[in-house]
């Protein structure tokens, strides 16, 4: 493991990656829209070898007491053993919870879902939007791949058939009505090794990076969520540069959102 670090270190300090990328270059991105027919909306994003499916389920439920007129948004991540030798079965580990919560925060704080339009009966009945993240192959940067898949799945999600008068719902029949989506928050994740900062860490980079930072930005370049991870640190100047640069990098990914 030590040798791997010095190797990556020297490559990255020369401004290159071991897979030939520039420091601020994403791996190839491939997107499938609505590959899961059973879901209300879904997306499969391949970011290099990282492969994530996000499925959206829209169900009837109760609102939270403090937001009686808003629909509910819930993000969950399942890091199942299928995707990596490092993933174990069992209750969700901190990594899975963090992934889900960071993706959730970008969408929630960026006000992507117009939750006010998901209310059926205030205080009683609202639409609940579940986003479930299932990595199929974890080769680094599950954050950006999952966040991208989530927003695409949301934008392509359709309501199930529901008759308000009879309160009859048919989860197996989808209407043509789409979820009310107001913004497109995009998550960009950077790694840091020594003093080099790079976009879209691969799994081999993730194993040795000192620190990680994820920044969610909106169309206007405003930041709507951030999260630093791992045990290294960033300087204030580095954070300021990252928050300014993210608009540019987010724009590239936003173009892929259909």
């Amino acid at each position: 493991m030590k040798i791997l670090k010095s190797h990556l270190k020297s490559v990255i300090s020369k401004g290159k990656r071991d897979d030939g990328r520039e420091l601020v270059e994403y791996r190839d991105i491939k997107i499938e829209v609505n590959p899961i027919q059973r879901a209300n909306g879904s997306a499969r994003v391949r970011l290099g070898n990282t492969d994530v499916i996000v499925g959206v389920k829209i169900e009837l439920g109760e609102p939270f007491p403090d937001t009686p007129e808003d629909g509910v948004q819930i993000v969950n991540a399942e890091l199942n053993s299928i995707a990596s030798p490092d993933f174990e079965e069992g209750p969700p580990r901190p990594e899975a919870i963090e992934l889900a919560r960071v993706v959730d925060r970008g969408i929630r704080e960026g006000k992507a879902i117009d939750t006010g339009k998901l209310c059926i009966t205030p205080g009683e009945k609202v639409w609940c939007v579940f986003m479930d993240i299932y990595p199929m192959n974890a080769d680094g940067n599950l954050f950006d791949a999952s966040a991208l898949a989530a927003i695409i799945a949301l934008k392509n999600a359709r309501f199930p058939k529901y008759d308000k008068k009879t309160d009859e719902i048919k989860y197996d029949e989808l209407t043509n009505e789409k979820l009310p989506i107001k913004t497109t928050p995009i998550l960009n994740t950077y790694g840091k090794i020594n003093n080099s900062i790079f976009l879209d860490p691969s799994s081999s980079e993730e194993k040795v990076l000192d620190a990680r930072i994820s920044v969610a930005t909106l169309e206007n370049g405003n930041v709507c969520a951030m999260q630093k991870g791992e045990t290294g640190t960033f300087t204030i100047d580095e954070i300021n540069k990252i928050t300014k640069d993210s608009k540019k990098y987010a724009e590239k990914l936003r173009k892929l959102v259909k």
Binding site: R105, R108, E109, G110, I213, L218, G221, N222, V223, C224, A225, M226, Q227, K228, T231, G232, T233, F234, T235, I236, I239, N240, T243, K244, K247
Partner: peptide, 14 residues
């Protein structure tokens, strides 16, 4: 002068 925890939610300009 380094930052070892950073989280953010809401909306802010750089």
């Amino acid at each position: 002068g380094e930052v070892s925890l950073l989280q953010m939610d809401g909306e802010l300009t750089p």
